[in-house]
Nucleic acid binder design. Structure first.
Lengths: 235, 235
DNA sequence: GTCTATAATGGGATAGAC
DNA sequence: GTCTATCCCATTATAGAC
């Protein structure tokens, strides 16, 4: 109704106002960024591909062109950063396992090796990393039977196992199952904290802020380290 | 096509096979039960009113007749048990505040007063209570800006505040903000544990079960009690 | 209060021009 | 690679018979 009548004017529209953004990688990245941000806030079912495309400023069809389906897009969001994220934590753990000294010092190094790389990325990784970490926590709080959770599981289960083994190694006086329970409590707390539900901010009347990760880490490590003492860890 | 042709036979269908379930309260309760179970597993957006009606064995229209909208139904699910649930916890806290003895004993009484009534309902409250508690944890892990979260907030914020004040009262040697951080960590861990994401079961290879709430409570209370010692609580 | 039918909208996905 | 238009189905919600 509009284009056909003007077709005959040929290629005169050289100085077209529309930017030429025929660059697939950039477009795909924009879609991933938007999906990351929206999935992190409202979950897999709470976001439509239309929402994501609108946020990215691209037509709906491009999300299908680049990723095929909504589930694939979700997986791609996880995959984009999973390796780098897990590697950073694994390196921190490796460093912590070299720490020598009293049991308490070594234990706190290991405990800190999980949360410190995460806090670092939250503070200096930019908005993409913030959204990614929030999304990971969000997914970890969902039933693991859900299909879309599987890419998350594959990357992080072995990582957690390595932490439990490292703690068990420096605490031979503890029952291994108690080590596992303790680390599960720690992991559980982190998982809730990182979704930034806003509960702490509200309940404290603003005195404590759940996005003040520096303050949070400084409390988290000694608190959970002391928790292991409650299970008979020597110091 | 079917009913009209037989209409003339009058009221001979006295022994009709279909049960007369013209009892609104029972039907409404069935819808609430199904909604509770499904929302607890897949969240607000992950469940359709069709899913709920099918699970309840009632026509779709009845969910609108009894509750008006999906959001209202969600609120009704929360409201049905919120008072009884919160009262049980408040009573447990009141009992814990009467406990005398060493600081550690009194502190563990308060810490246990949050999780014990919940574990009790999980063990003996029947499937409805199990689903309800899982749903509460699920909601607590969602951004508090979401509209459907507000009925949750209204019931539980003041409850948590009472716990923090009770702990602060028996630990005047602690900085009040540290008490608040510690209880937030505790609450955060519980919030993740109660969604039963299945992480513990998988990571432990089945050695630990996140639905073994008796074992969990016996570990949870001493662990988090010890955590407060890491913040300088006397024992 | 219950139930069938349908309205009205939004969802994921695709065809085909450019 | 990009974009418009559209298919087809699921969704919430309502109208109206019983």
């Amino acid at each position: 109704m509009r284009g056909n009548l003007l077709k005959m004017s040929g290629e005169v529209d050289a100085a077209a106002p529309k930017v030429d953004r025929r660059r697939a990688p950039e477009t795909a990245a924009r879609i991933l960024d938007s999906a990351e941000a929206l999935f992190a806030r409202r979950g897999f079912y709470g976001v439509s591909l239309r929402d994501i495309a609108a946020e990215a400023g691209v037509p709906l069809a491009l999300s299908h062109y680049h990723f095929g389906s909504k589930e694939n897009l979700f997986s791609a969001v996880i995959e984009r950063r999973a390796g780098e994220h897990a590697d950073g934590i694994a390196q921190a753990l490796a460093g912590a396992m070299q720490v020598r000294g009293r049991a308490r010092v070594r234990r706190e190094a290991i405990i800190g090796a999980l949360i410190r790389p995460i806090a670092q990325r939250l503070a200096h990784g930019g908005p993409g990393w913030k959204n990614y970490i929030r999304l990971l926590a969000f997914v970890a709080n969902h039933p693991q039977e859900e299909d879309y959770v599987s890419p998350f599981r594959q990357h992080y289960d072995s990582l957690i196992l390595a932490f439990v083994q490292a703690l068990a190694a420096i605490h031979p006086e503890m029952a291994p199952l108690d080590v596992q329970w303790g680390f599960f409590f720690y992991q559980a707390a982190i998982t809730h904290i990182l979704v930034e539900s806003g509960m702490l901010d509200r309940q404290s009347g603003g005195a404590l802020r759940s996005d003040d990760f520096t303050a949070m880490v400084e409390r988290l490590v000694p608190f959970f380290s002391a928790g292991f003492r409650g299970f008979g860890a020597r110091d």
